[in-house]
C-alpha cells in the first residue's frame, strides 16, 4: 500500500477584509470556500451548490487598479488567491473594538430596512454582488432609466429560494440611488 501523502500543501498569502491572514500550508487542491470556512472559520461565505451556479459563495476580489469583482469560491482554488485581497460578507460593516457591528454598509442597511432576506443563506452572495454593482456604477454610472435593467443583469445569476428576489432588488435600487454618482439623468 502506498504511503505517499495524497495531500500536497504549500504556503498561501492572502488578505481577507483588509487583514493579512496568517501564512500556513494549504492543500494545493483546496477550494477557497473550504479555506475560508475550515481554516479561517469565516463561515459567512456559504456552500450552496459546489458547482458555481447558486453564488452563495461569492466574495469580492479587490484589484490594485481599484476595480472590484465577484468570484465564486466554491469552484476557485484557494491558491488562485495567492497575493490577492478579498472581501467577504464579514468585512462590510464597520465594527467597534469588541468586533460588534457599529455601522452597516449602505447595501447591508438597505437589505435590513427592506426585510430583503428571510433565511439569509444567500444573503452574503447578494451583499457582495450588490456592493460590486454599486462600486461599478460609481466608476461607470448608468442612466436612471436603465437602473432596474442594470440591477437585473447584475443579480440575475444569484439564486434565492425564500424571497422571490423582490425585496433584494428594491433594496439594491435604494442603495444605488443613495450612493452619489451612480446614475445620470435619462
Amino acid at each position: 500500500m502506498s504511503t505517499t501523502d495524497p495531500i500536497v500543501s504549500k504556503p498561501l498569502h492572502v488578505t481577507v477584509n483588509g487583514i493579512e491572514q496568517p501564512v500556513e500550508d494549504i492543500p494545493e487542491q483546496l477550494m477557497m470556500l473550504d479555506y475560508l470556512n475550515e481554516y479561517r472559520n469565516l463561515t459567512g461565505t456559504r456552500f450552496g451548490c459546489g458547482i458555481g451556479v447558486c453564488r452563495a459563495c461569492t466574495v469580492i476580489v479587490d484589484h490594485e487598479d481599484g476595480r472590484s469583482e465577484e468570484i465564486r469560491t466554491c469552484i476557485t482554488g484557494a491558491h488562485y488567491f495567492e497575493g490577492k485581497s478579498i472581501r467577504t460578507v464579514e468585512g462590510h460593516a464597520t465594527r467597534d473594538e469588541n468586533g460588534d457591528v457599529a455601522k452597516l454598509s449602505e447595501v447591508q442597511q438597505q437589505f435590513l430596512d427592506h426585510f430583503s432576506f428571510q433565511c439569509s443563506y444567500c444573503a452574503p452572495g447578494f451583499v457582495n454582488a450588490a456592493t460590486v454593482l454599486v462600486e461599478r456604477l460609481q466608476r461607470e454610472p448608468v442612466p436612471r432609466s436603465q437602473l432596474e435593467a442594470t440591477i437585473s443583469d447584475a443579480l440575475e445569476s444569484h439564486l434565492c429560494r425564500c424571497t422571490g428576489y423582490v425585496r433584494y432588488f428594491r433594496a439594491v435600487r435604494a442603495a444605488v440611488l443613495a450612493t452619489p454618482g451612480t446614475t445620470v439623468e435619462g
Binding site: 463561515t43 460578507v89 464579514e90 457591528v101 452597516l104 447591508q108 435590513l112 439569509s120 451583499v127
Partner: peptide, 18 residues
C-alpha cells in the same frame, strides 16, 4: 427590521452549517 437581520446580513454564525 428583523431582529435577526443584523446578524444575518453581516455573515454571523446563524446556521448549524456555520
Amino acid at each position: 427590521f428583523r431582529l435577526d437581520g443584523i446578524a444575518k446580513v453581516t455573515g454571523s454564525k446563524v446556521f448549524a452549517r456555520d
